[in-house]
Design a protein around this nucleic acid. Structure first.
Length: 853
RNA sequence: GCGAAAGUGGCGGAAUUGGCAGACGCGCUGGCCUUAGGAGCCAGUGGGCUUAGCCCGUGGGGGUUCGAGUCCCCCCUUUCGCACCA
């Protein structure tokens, strides 16, 4: 018997698959009416080496892809590289190389690693986003978005580091200082490009309901992120000094609780609110102001400077200052002081609120601190609401209830009713209307980085912002940009790139030097796999429609919001551009858990990483893949324990020994399988049943439940069952019945091939087959085999297990069964002295004798 | 605070969705084989007891049911995401 030499076997079959183009997927146009299955794994960032998390991700995807091929689907299973981004730029600076060079090297190394693992990718469709042939289409989409008002340029506040002369992302500002050079970060207004994802806010939210094959968790996170709240917008007239009144003399607020408006006792605006600037520019404060205008200016600046950063649990202190102006509550004509405070945010709602301290916790805290009046207008709901009746709840009270008698014509209404009625009232009288607000903001694209997609725009002194004409795409990233840290966007200093003639009027103009967020690349890559070499379109519509939506998308849960939201947005935008005919990019989503070691996420800094190469070297790709799937169900975190690998290695060793060692005793392939008649000796009949049961379990686990750990456990059981049967009736002894062994071995090899494809294929050959398992039909099981005519029923007395009964499977006669059970002395002893009241019969399974004393 | 999960042997994890709790694997114990074993094979392995059997046992407490890891109510713990969102 040959030794199990994994590295020789794996190399040989990988070569075979490559040479026979086993995993090539023909274009949809060529494959006609075939059933299609698109199995997609999140494309890796080429950071240098594959890590265990990748192995897990791709082993899951490969098991699914291989299973679907065997099921007769035309399977799309591609891979590529998310190759633009900051790490490459930083590494290039450190190592005095070029990001393209660094990236290419990493891709080559990682591709080799993936190939050693034997994943069934169609390598002819490989893409890399750093190639102009790829990112040029990012630019093409940008221009289409621009034409459709889905892309726009807007001035906005950004974090600016004066020493580095660059914009910093919010995450790069620590305690108001630059993470790199520690200088104080300034706020600047800078023109940035945005994608108008908010146009799809409603659709993206409603679409979540249709994503029935997505994890609840991801749905919840997206819902949360989009953050829809329905409420009312109300305009309060400003009552202040003439000069200070803003343009329209109105202060507009958004509230979800217009029913509490009679309890409003003051107003609060964000420090950045236009009203504040106009007030300060107006030069005069109201008569009641507690300070002069310069003092107020200083206070407002202080409030605005309070950083809005991540907080843990406790609220930050609320600070505010009275402006000296008032606003009129349109519902009761009351004059309310207008404050400026740090807890009101300019980028949500209208940047101004009515404060109802009796019914809002934040307003209550603020009112208490500054000694502002608190007036309850809502009390607990009762069946027969009586304004003023009953005890008032503790304040602040923000639950539902009914309105007290101090709410004019609305007194006595339930809060939900009141909101509808009062919103309608506001609309009729023209000072308000129903409104929906989202937390979702438009997608800021601009990055002051080199290693990204150049934004295809030219700034002309005469024409303004001019899009690069389609025929000039792609705008190629210049290879010779000066890369060094902290000097701003490198592209600004590449004269040959920046200086360009305006495509519209021909005068000297300047190129946009910002590049795109790399999330753009990953928002549509799954479509590029379908037409990877097409120079005329980003993807063919025929292919796009044939393969969309992706049937199963597999990746880490860390992308639950940003990537997966952009991904969904792009799909809808492409649909509206007429490029695609679906609403959602994927049907199924599997978010795999993290791989941890010593209880912590694997990371280079913690030094707890595991290099898959070592494991492949030592145990082989098959064992490595089998183990990452066996150790835990895909959605759970996986705690890495090297010792478990031994178990999987032993299992494959046992399978090898079983099939390789016994193949010569089996009947030939041509002899086929016999019929399992009554003459089949019991140990073989048992094995025969086990084979069918295993097919049933593995099929369900792989195709429906995506639970590969239990599928592999079932294959282990089948292997054990083969050995058990062998002890009773060896293959030679089985004689004419030895086809049962052939059946068991073949089914084992065929099903194993989706997890451990190399050894399975090798054993398949040993079993006398010449065909490739890649498209060999997935086995079916025969339910009738699982029906044994004898069953072991368990017998309970009052729900407790007391004995067993071997009976014909379909025997359901209560009387008869009870009599049989009572023949058992143990059971009789438990029923003795008690009255048998009734029996519960689950045919073939359970007899429960219920007694009373 | 809001939202989503999860809690089962020494460990990773099973349990056909209300029907034998602990499949499968790791680890551990004993045995066989071997010059040797960090190889292989066999057996055992939730806790306890007065051991043909019995009692206890799925985070805790109640409940529904002939029967609950599974369903309902309350509570505890852990993980993740969001968080001054008006």
């Amino acid at each position: 018997m040959a030794e199990y030499n994994h590295s020789e076997i794996e190399k040989r079959w990988q070569k075979h698959w490559r040479e026979t183009a086993a995993f090539r997927t023909p274009p949809a146009g060529e494959s006609g009416e075939a059933e299609r299955f698109y199995c997609l794994e999140m494309l890796p960032y080429p950071s240098g080496r594959i890590h265990i998390g990748h192995v897990r991700n791709y082993s899951i995807g490969d098991a699914v892809a291989r299973n679907r091929r065997m099921r007769g689907y035309e399977v799309m299973h591609p891979i590529g590289w998310d190759a633009l981004g900051l790490p490459a730029e930083n590494a290039a600076i450190e190592q005095q190389t070029h990001p393209a060079e660094w990236t290419r090297k990493n891709i080559d190394a990682m591709r080799a690693q993936l190939q050693r693992l034997g994943f069934s990718y169609d390598w002819d469709r490989e893409i890399a986003s750093y190639q102009p042939e790829y990112y040029g289409w990012n630019q093409w989409f940008f221009l289409r978005f621009l034409e459709n008002d889905l892309a726009y340029r807007k001035d906005g506040p950004v974090n600016w580091c004066p020493s580095c002369a660059t914009v910093l992302a919010n995450e790069q500002v620590e305690e108001g200082r630059c993470w790199r050079c520690d200088s104080e970060v300034e706020e600047r207004r800078l023109a940035q490009w945005f994608y108008r994802i908010t146009r799809y806010a409603e659709e993206l939210l409603d679409g979540l309901d249709g994503l029935t094959e997505w994890p609840e968790r991801v749905i919840a996170m997206q819902r949360n992120w989009i953050g829809r709240s329905r409420g009312t917008e109300i305009a309060f007239a400003i009552d202040g000094p003439e000069e200070a009144a803003p343009s329209d003399g109105q202060l507009r607020i958004f509230t979800t609780r217009v029913d509490t408006i009679f309890g409003a006792t003051f107003m609060v605006v964000a420090p950045e609110h236009p009203f504040v600037r106009e007030l300060l520019d107006g030069g005069e404060l109201g008569a009641d102001a507690s300070m002069d205008i310069e003092e107020l200016r200083a206070e407002v600046e202080r409030l605005a400077a309070m950083p809005r950063r991540a907080r843990r649990g406790e609220d930050i202190d609320k600070h505010g200052v009275f402006t000296g102006s008032y606003a009129i509550n349109p519902f009761n004509g009351e004059r309310l002081p207008i404050w400026v405070a740090n807890f009101v945010l300019m980028d949500y709602g209208t940047g101004a609120i009515m404060a109802v301290p009796a019914h809002d916790e934040r307003d209550h805290t603020f009112a208490t601190k500054y000694d502002l009046p608190v007036r309850p207008v809502i009390s607990l709901a009762t069946e027969d609401p009586e304004p003023d009746g009953g005890d008032l709840p503790d304040l602040p009270f923000s639950e539902e209830g009914h309105l007290l008698s101090n709410c004019g014509e609305f007194s006595g209404l339930g809060t939900a009713d009141a909101r509808a009625t009062m919103t309608a009232h506001a609309k009729t009288l023209g000072f308000g209307h129903g409104a929906i607000d989202y937390k979702l903001k438009d997608w800021g694209l601009s990055r002051q980085r080199y290693w990204g997609t150049p934004i295809p725009i030219i700034h002309c002194p005469a024409c303004g912002v001019v899009p690069v004409p389609d025929e000039d795409l792609p705008v190629v990233l210049p290879a010779d940009a000066p890369l060094d840290r902290g000097q701003g966007s490198p592209l600004e200093r590449v004269e040959s790139f920046v200086n360009v003639d305006c495509p519209r009027c021909g005068v000297a103009a300047r190129r946009e030097t910002d590049t795109m967020d790399t999330f753009v690349d990953s928002s549509w890559y799954y479509l590029r796999y379908l037409s990877p070499n097409d120079a005329t379109v980003p993807f063919s519509k025929i292919e796009g429609d044939a393969w969309s939506p992706v049937d199963l998308y597999i990746g880490g849960v860390e992308h639950a919001v940003l990537h997966l939201l952009y991904f969904r947005f792009f799909c809808r935008a492409l649909r509206d551009l007429g490029l695609l005919s679906v609403d959602e990019p994927t049907r199924g989503l599997l978010t795999q858990g993290m791989v941890t070691k010593d209880g912590a996420k694997m990371s280079k800094s913690k030094g707890n990483t595991v290099d898959p190469d070592e494991m492949v070297e030592r145990y082989g790709a098959d064992t490595t893949r089998l183990f990452v799937l066996f150790a835990a169900p895909p959605v759970r975190d996986l705690e890495w324990d090297e010792r478990g690998v031994e178990g999987c290695a032993r299992f494959l060793g046992r399978v090898w020994k079983l099939i390789e060692g016994e193949a010569s005793s089996l009947p030939p392939v041509e002899a086929g399988f016999g019929d399992a008649g009554p003459s089949l000796p019991e140990p073989l009949a048992q094995l025969h049943r086990k084979v069918h049961e295993t097919v049933r379990r593995v099929t369900r686990d792989v195709e429906e439940r995506l639970q590969f750990n239990t599928a592999i456990a079932a294959l282990m059981e089948l292997t054990n069952a083969c050995n058990t049967a062998r002890q009773a009736v060896s293959i030679v002894e089985a004689g004419e019945h030895s086809w049962v062994y052939r059946l068991a071995f073949e089914r084992l090899a065929v099903m194993l091939s989706v997890f451990a494809p190399h050894i399975a294929q090798e054993l398949w050959t040993t079993l006398g087959h010449s065909e490739d398992l890649t498209r060999y039909p997935w086995p079916e099981y025969d339910p009738s085999v699982l029906q044994s005519d004898e069953a072991t029923m368990i017998v309970q007395v009052d729900g407790r297990l007391r004995g067993r009964l071997v009976v014909p499977t379909d025997l359901a006669d209560e009387q008869r069964l009870t009599e049989m059970a009572m023949a058992d002395p143990v059971i009789r002893a438990h029923v003795e002295g008690r009255q048998l009241r009734r029996s519960i019969v689950v045919p073939g399974k359970i007899l429960n004798l219920v007694t009373s004393p």
